[in-house]
């Protein structure tokens, strides 16, 4: 590239033209994205700082192991890979929309934009499911000497260290509520009885039933985990959402021949930059929360 420039002997910086041969809108978009990269960077670095200040951090494979419709099957990272692919594919369709825009091919622009919007909405749907699953999940957690069933919220984290077998655990089981024990028995198939029937049994029987089960009871984990997870994926989701809105506006403008009349589809290009940035951020969110 640079060689082409110098052979032309263009005085890029001498004024009277863009030194980058880029219209100001795109320059602004790029620098805005750079600025936004610092917003996300600051979030992710804060997350890292807190994580580095803790002795223990939950293993993402243990936290993110559910898949819609797969019940309690242990499928680490499966769902998030689906989300990642949705976003990559939607990025590809956006590239194609921008490319069609360069050619002034209105029909293709509209088609690929529509697919991008579908991808964006699909991603948001996945995120909604994942959040819902995490918040409403019931995980046996050792809290204040008894077992409680809690989900992942901003104020509590059920993914601490595993509680080793021992008198402490036994005492905790004895202290726990009837319905917690019943759920545990049910979950570990330690009895044929239904939940309602288990509720009628004496507590000690339930504890006995659990004596042979392999319990995955954890302590409370670092609270900041949830805050950062919801905060950062939420902020990213907000970007996806606004990207979808922008793309919808672009689609409407395309259909109303606004760009045809202007003679160029540069707006699509800028919307495309934004959308790819959303994908780019996800690559790093994926890295920080799910992989390492």
């Amino acid at each position: 590239m640079a060689t082409t420039v110098s052979t032309h002997q263009t005085k890029w910086w001498s004024g009277g033209k863009s030194p980058f041969n880029v219209e100001y809108g795109k320059v602004m978009m790029w620098y805005f994205l750079m600025s936004d990269a610092f917003t996300f960077g600051a979030f992710l670095i804060s997350y890292g700082t807190i994580r580095f200040s803790q002795n223990f951090w939950p293993d993402p494979n243990v936290v993110f192991n559910a898949f819609p419709g797969a019940g309690h099957a242990n499928l680490p990272l499966a769902f998030v890979s689906v989300m990642t692919f949705i976003l990559i594919i939607s990025s590809v369709t956006m590239v194609l929309a921008v490319h069609a825009g360069h050619k002034g091919d209105k029909a293709s622009v509209a088609k690929w934009l529509a697919w991008t919007i579908v991808g964006g909405i699909a991603f948001l749907g996945c995120q909604a499911w994942e959040w819902h699953h995490l918040i409403t999940g019931e995980h046996a957690t050792l809290i204040d000497g008894q077992i409680q069933m809690v989900g992942q919220t901003t104020t509590i984290n059920p993914w601490g260290q595993l509680v080793a077998a021992g008198p402490e655990l036994t005492a905790a089981l004895n202290n726990s509520d009837q319905h917690v024990l019943a759920s545990l028995v049910h979950e570990h198939h330690a009895s044929q009885l239904g939940h309602a029937e288990l509720m009628k049994l004496p507590k000690q029987d339930l504890v006995n039933m659990l004596s042979n089960a392999e319990l995955h009871i954890r302590e409370k984990g670092p609270v900041a985990f949830g805050g950062y997870f919801y905060g950062i994926t939420g902020f990213h989701g907000f970007h996806v959402f606004s990207g979808v809105i922008i793309n919808i506006v672009m689609l409407i403008m395309t259909q109303k021949n606004v760009f045809e009349r202007r003679g160029h589809y540069l707006m699509i290009e800028k919307a495309g930059l934004y959308w790819h940035f959303v994908d780019l951020v996800w690559v790093f969110v994926f890295l920080c929360f799910y992989l390492i």
């Binding site: 260290q161 021992g166 004596s211 995955h216 009871i217 670092p222």
Partner: peptide
């Protein structure tokens, strides 16, 4: 307190599940 409660306990692989001991009926309970 921070160190004791949060340090990873190294003696067992940290995903090994726990098996509670068979509870001994405690006097005075039930």
């Amino acid at each position: 307190h921070f160190k004791e409660t949060t340090s990873p306990r190294p003696h067992h692989g940290h995903e090994a599940p726990a098996k509670p001991e068979a509870p001994k009926p405690e006097p005075g309970k039930q």
